[in-house]
Amino acid sequence: MKTQNNVNFQRIEEAIGYLRNNFRQQPNLDEVAEHVHLSPYHFQRMFTDWAGVSPKKFLQYISTAYAKKLLKEEQATLSEVAYETGLSGTSRLHDLFMNIEGMTPAEYKNGGKSLVINYSFADSPFGEIMVASTKKGICHLAFSVDEERSLNGLRNQFPNAQFNQHLDMIQQNALFLFTHDWSKLNEIKLHLKGTDFQLKVWETLIKIPSGGLSTYGQIARQISNPKASRAVGSAVGDNPVAYLIPCHRVIQSTGQIGEYHWGSNRKTAMIGWEAVQTN
């Protein structure tokens, strides 16, 4: 006998399959809801509860992944990519990439050739950090032991970009968090590039509150991929923006602190510091 949960899961599974098979037609909410015999309102709520993102966002992830493949592997033009992805034109392709990738399709294709990146070094409670930004937001934040080495690491991420050592307002708003000025939190914008899976994981990390902790398994379940704990761990390790995307708040299910790109001792100190600030 099927339980209601089983019926609901089958409907969501069917909806996901429908979106994957028909994303080039860019089906709207009403069309997908009708396919699984639900009202648009009920389907929207159910899909978001089970998949962790809205049907629209899930469709955007699929469309972006396909568009990225066309741009990188087949060197398609922007018009060709827009057409093959089922978008009405290059302006919609532009909006899709800005929403999911934080950069234009052209910027993604040419390795940041048209990007101007400002960077600076600053002190934090956990050691020196390097912070970098474009006009769209923070693209990199990392703890630094050697400034030249840190800059080379940034250049490897954006091999064709122009770099200026300059502290701008975008960086200053981010650095305010280390001085307890949380009023600037809403002013911080991020400019990220990554796979759809990485972006989904990073988006989930941002929702972990200061002073709170999560596990790799919990993150995997939140993105409706409970068997992907190892893949979540890899995405957490690839986080390009330390602290603002709080990968340090993810620990092992056993309660152990676990590894951290910038050292487990620093991770322990950050968790303890946040616990004090929130008490």
Rank of each mutant, 00 (worst) to 15 (best):
A76Y: 09
S224C: 07
Y66L: 09
L59Y: 03
G217S: 11
V276F: 03
A231S: 08
I271C: 10
F43N: 11
F58C: 07
F23Q: 02
N239W: 02
L213F: 04
D95M: 10
R11E: 13
H140F: 14
I129E: 05
R266P: 13
Y119S: 02
A67K: 13
Q252C: 00
H42M: 06
S91A: 04
E147P: 03
N8F: 05
M103L: 13
A51S: 08
E187Y: 01
S124A: 10
A242V: 03
Y243P: 01
S79L: 05
R24Y: 10
I245C: 07
D30E: 13
T268V: 13
W273Q: 11
E187A: 09
H191N: 12
Y18L: 10
G233D: 00
Q75D: 09
I271V: 15
I223R: 12
A15Y: 05
L115M: 08
F9M: 11
Y83S: 10
A82F: 01
A67E: 11
L199P: 09
P159G: 07
A235T: 09
F58Q: 09
P125H: 02
N239S: 10
V131K: 08
E148V: 08
L167F: 06
F197C: 02
R92S: 14
S54M: 04
Q44M: 01
S120W: 05
L78Y: 04
I12L: 07
S234A: 15
R249A: 05
G86E: 06
S133K: 07
W202F: 08
Q162H: 08
K189Y: 08
H261A: 07
K184T: 14
N279L: 15
L19T: 01
A122C: 09
G112F: 01
E101R: 04
Q222T: 03
L96W: 05
I188G: 05
T104Y: 01
K109Y: 00
P40I: 12
K56R: 15
P246E: 14
L177K: 08
H37P: 01
A269P: 02
T268K: 15
S150T: 14
K189H: 12
H248R: 12
G86R: 05
C139Q: 09
G211H: 11
K113L: 08
H140T: 06
Y66G: 10
Y108C: 03
N173H: 13
A142R: 12
N225T: 12
P226V: 09
P226F: 07
W182S: 15
M130K: 07
H35Y: 11
V145D: 14
A82R: 06
V201N: 12
G17F: 08
Y260K: 13
H94Q: 14
K109Q: 14
Q4I: 10
T48V: 09
G272R: 14
N164W: 01
M98D: 04
I245H: 05
L87H: 13
H37N: 13
